[in-house]
Simulated assay, not measured.
Amino acid sequence: MTEHTFTGPRTFPDRTGTEQAERIDAERVLVVGGTGKSGRRVAALLPGARVASRAGTPPFDWRQPATWPAVLGDARAVYLSYPSDIAAPGAAEDLAAFAALAARSGVRRLVLLSGRGMPWAAASEAAVTGSGLEWTVLRGSWFAQNFSEEFLVEEVRRGSFTLPVPATAAEPFVDLDDLAEVAVAALTGPGLVGRVLELTGPRALTMTETAEALAAAIGRPVAFRSVAPAAYRDGLVALGLPEGEAGLLTHLFTEVFDGRNTPVTADVPEVLGRRARDFASYARRAAAAGAWPSPA
C-alpha cells in the first residue's frame, strides 16, 4: 500500500465495553468547521456528509447558538473543529452547549479535534467526553499544512518562517490527510469510541530540519528564524491580530514546543494500517501543487 492511498479504516474491537456502538453512514455525519483545513478533508472523504460553516446554507456560527439546531437535522455523528483554538475563552462553554443540543437532537457520536500536549484544553475535551454521547478525541500534533495553508505560507514563500521557539525544538508534524482519515474511522466505525488518540507523523524534525525539508521540496533556500516570545506577540499584533489572541497563540507555541510533544506515537499506523505520512513527502506534494511560488 502506498502512503497516499486511502482504502478505509481498519476494523477494531469496541473499546467501550458494550455492544451498542454502531457503524454510521456518511449521510448521517455532520462536519462542523467543514470548510477549514481539517474539516474540508474530512468532508471530502465522506460523500453525502453535511458541512456546517458560517458561509453554509443554513449558516452555522459558534457565537450564535440560534444557528445550531438547523444544521443538525438527522445527524448521528458530528465532527467538531472549533475555530481559533480549543483553549480559547468560551470554547468549553460552546462545546458543552452544542453537545447538549446534539444529544437532544438524536446525535449518537462526537469526534473532537483537540491539540496534543495541551492540558489547558481539558475543559473543552471534558465538555465532549462528559456529554453522555459516544466520543473520540483526536489530539493532533502541529499540522504540516500550517506551512502551506494560511498560517505560515506567506513567510515560507519569501524564504523563511518565524516562531518563538529554539531551532532545536522538534515536532512530529501530522499530515492533515492522515488526521482526516482517522477522523472518518472514528465518525463511521465503532472501534474508536471512548478513545483519546495522539496523532503524529513518523518522525520528529527540529525547526532547522523542517526548514531544510521545505527548501529541498521548493528548490530554493528556506530559513528558520527564532524570536523572543514578546517580539513574536508584538509582531502578531502589528499584523492586526487582537492582543488577547496574539498572546494566546504565543503562549501555546512556546508551551507545546518545549519537548513534551517530541515523541512519536503509533496511533496513526494503528488506525490506518500503514505508516503515517512523512513531512518531507508532504512538502514535496505541497510544492508540486503550487503552495510556494516564487515571490514576484
Rank of each mutant, 00 (worst) to 15 (best):
E150T: 12
L152S: 09
V153F: 10
E155Y: 06
V156Y: 01
R157A: 07
R158C: 12
R158F: 11
R158Q: 14
S160P: 06
S160K: 09
T162C: 02
T162D: 11
P164N: 14
V165I: 15
A167V: 09
T168S: 15
A170W: 00
E171F: 05
P172R: 00
F173R: 04
F173E: 01
V174A: 03
D175L: 07
D175I: 03
D175F: 02
D177E: 15
D178T: 02
L179F: 07
L179R: 03
A180P: 06
A180N: 05
A180S: 13
E181I: 05
V184T: 09
V184H: 01
L187I: 12
L192N: 08
G194H: 01
G194K: 02
G194Y: 04
E198S: 07
E198F: 02
G201D: 01
P202F: 04
R203C: 00
A204M: 00
A204P: 00
T206Q: 04
T206F: 02
M207N: 04
T208S: 14
T208H: 06
E209P: 02
T210R: 01
T210Y: 02
T210G: 05
A211S: 09
E212N: 06
A213D: 02
A213N: 03
A217L: 10
A217K: 01
A217H: 02
I218W: 01
I218K: 05
R220A: 14
V222I: 15
A223K: 11
R225A: 13
S226Y: 09
S226E: 12
A228L: 13
A230L: 10
A231G: 11
Y232Q: 08
R233S: 07
R233T: 09
L236C: 10
L236R: 11
V237A: 14
A238W: 03
L239K: 07
P242H: 03
E243S: 15
G244I: 14
G244S: 15
G244V: 15
L248E: 14
T250G: 12
H251N: 12
L252R: 14
L252D: 15
L252C: 12
F253S: 12
T254Y: 11
T254Q: 10
D258K: 09
G259F: 00
G259Y: 00
R260D: 12
N261T: 13
N261P: 08
T262G: 00
P263N: 03
A266N: 08
A266Y: 02
D267I: 01
D267V: 03
P269W: 10
P269M: 05
E270R: 06
L272S: 04
G273Y: 07
R274G: 07
R275L: 11
A276L: 03
R277M: 10
R277D: 06
R277V: 08
D278A: 09
S281E: 15
A283W: 07
R284L: 15
R284G: 04
R284S: 14
A286E: 14
A286N: 10
A287M: 08
A287F: 06
G290T: 11
A291T: 08
W292F: 05
P293V: 12
A296V: 13
A296T: 11
